[in-house]
Amino acid sequence: MASSAPTLGILLRKLRSRHGWTLKQMSENSGIPLSTLSKVEHDRLTLTYDKLYQVSQRLGIPISELFAEAGQDATPTVTARRSLGYVDRALHVETPNYDYYFLCTELRRKRMIPVITKIRARTSKEFGELVHHPGEEFVYVLRGTIVVNTEFYDPVVLEVGQSIYIDSSMGHAYLAAEGCDEAEVLGVMSSGGEDLQESLMSIHDPHNGQRNPAAASAIRTVRQ
């Protein structure tokens, strides 16, 4: 019989033990109140996704570590899930730099997020700070020319039909190349966590990005 999945409390205790931290030190390092951590470790309370994301960022660990044990055996399950993606039915999220069209949003807890992105920002100053998020991503240029800026590599220019695969935790930004007013790419993001889509949508300041009414409705549907 397969062993049951470890609880969040067990995972946090093992993480704390691995670092040799007291509960107080864990609280100070993670920004989670000591009393809350104590309840979580004793499985009397859980943490919201926002708090889990905070823990992963403050402690510098992949958020996937808070969902499953490294190396834990898992029995493959055939879910037979399927979803057809249409841009005109996509969840549309607007930000100063991009227009995102999240596809196949009716499927919850996806490990891959397909998204069509229209890129408008043309300079690093216009874009702002490089973004980071858990997981990896693949981007394929559909229209126009883009410049890919990354934290540890020189900028690279990609034209239609070219692609790039990167570690998403590395700072990165996609810009429209000089002479290109707007580029369009297909991106597929993946992560061990199950709330990658919400994580991606929270990267940009919600006061800057504007969601259209249909998108807001779709977001509520996804979160139900």
Results as ranks from 00 to 15, higher is better:
residue 113 I to A: 00
residue 128 G to L: 11
residue 219 I to V: 15
residue 152 F to D: 11
residue 89 R to K: 08
residue 70 A to K: 12
residue 114 P to K: 00
residue 204 H to Q: 13
residue 28 E to N: 08
residue 184 E to S: 09
residue 136 E to V: 10
residue 133 H to Y: 09
residue 189 M to N: 13
residue 122 R to Q: 15
residue 34 L to I: 14
residue 58 R to E: 14
residue 81 R to W: 01
residue 79 T to N: 00
residue 204 H to G: 10
residue 210 Q to N: 11
residue 110 K to G: 04
residue 170 M to P: 01
residue 20 G to P: 04
residue 42 H to K: 06
residue 144 G to K: 05
residue 106 E to L: 00
residue 153 Y to W: 02
residue 222 V to E: 08
residue 77 T to G: 04
residue 157 V to I: 15
residue 100 Y to N: 02
residue 48 T to E: 06
residue 89 R to A: 05
residue 63 I to V: 15
residue 59 L to T: 07
residue 2 A to F: 09
residue 160 V to D: 02
residue 207 H to C: 14
residue 205 D to Q: 07
residue 8 L to I: 06
residue 54 Q to M: 08
residue 94 E to G: 00
residue 141 V to K: 08
residue 199 S to A: 15
residue 99 D to A: 06
residue 211 R to S: 13
residue 131 V to F: 02
residue 197 Q to N: 03
residue 8 L to N: 04
residue 5 A to G: 04
residue 81 R to N: 10
residue 131 V to I: 13
residue 7 T to Y: 03
residue 145 T to M: 05
residue 167 D to Y: 10
residue 35 S to M: 07
residue 217 S to L: 11
residue 155 P to I: 09
residue 95 T to R: 05
residue 44 R to A: 01
residue 209 G to W: 10
residue 168 S to R: 04
residue 10 I to L: 06
residue 100 Y to I: 01
residue 76 P to K: 09
residue 49 Y to R: 10
residue 173 A to D: 06
residue 119 I to V: 15
residue 87 V to I: 14
residue 91 L to V: 07
residue 131 V to C: 06
residue 109 R to Y: 06
residue 120 R to A: 04
residue 80 A to S: 09
residue 206 P to A: 14
residue 197 Q to T: 10
residue 161 G to L: 03
residue 177 A to N: 14
residue 202 S to M: 10
residue 56 S to C: 09
residue 199 S to Q: 13
residue 1 M to N: 07
residue 78 V to K: 06
